[in-house]
Amino acid sequence: MPATGGRPAHDDPGSDDSGNGGAVLRLRPPVNRVDPRAKRWWWTQTLAITGAPLVVLVVLALALPPARGWLLVAAAAVAAAGLPLGILLPLWWYRVHRWEVTDSAVYTRTGYFWQEWRVAPMSRIQTVDTQRGPLEQLFGLATVTVSTASAKGAVTIQGLDHQLAADLVQQLTETTQATPGDAT
């Protein structure tokens, strides 16, 4: 296999999978990024996750003088691990989470270490839901879930602008209603 496009070369002869005449086929990233405000939403979440144990540890340290040293060490460890991760992860998520809606399908990509591409064709969409938790409402965001007749085929787009999400739901609902069949 030719090592094109910055892909590392294979030293393993068995992985030669030239099923399409030598050209390497791959899934392109979906066009749209999520709303930039999603970064703030994710930061709030990661800070809450890191902050809660931090507060507990510090309060305990103040309340229990004998164990203060150890508790502060633990708190420092949590802070040292949690804060950089909490700040960097949302930036990263913003880079890797992408979505796209075409006339024929909904297409998303999520994750980096375990990257996942999902596609659900318009003709098979059964329900389109929006969820807005309290934090999402605060930041004017919404999550859209597109589900098909498969128990495992749902496609979720997080961190959309809520107005855009509403329009999207409208568009998807109209398109799927126009499609005949029971979508199984």
């Binding site: 270490f113 999902r118 659900a120 064709p121």
Partner: peptide
């Protein structure tokens, strides 16, 4: 088949592998 999911861990990416999942309304769903 009513949808595809492709998954690739970082280890699979290094070796040019991919796990493909066909979603369906029947049976186990995927």
């Amino acid at each position: 088949v009513i949808g595809w999911t492709a998954r690739q861990s970082i280890f699979q990416r290094r070796r040019g592998l991919l796990t493909l999942t066909a979603t369906t309304a029947a049976g186990g769903g995927a």
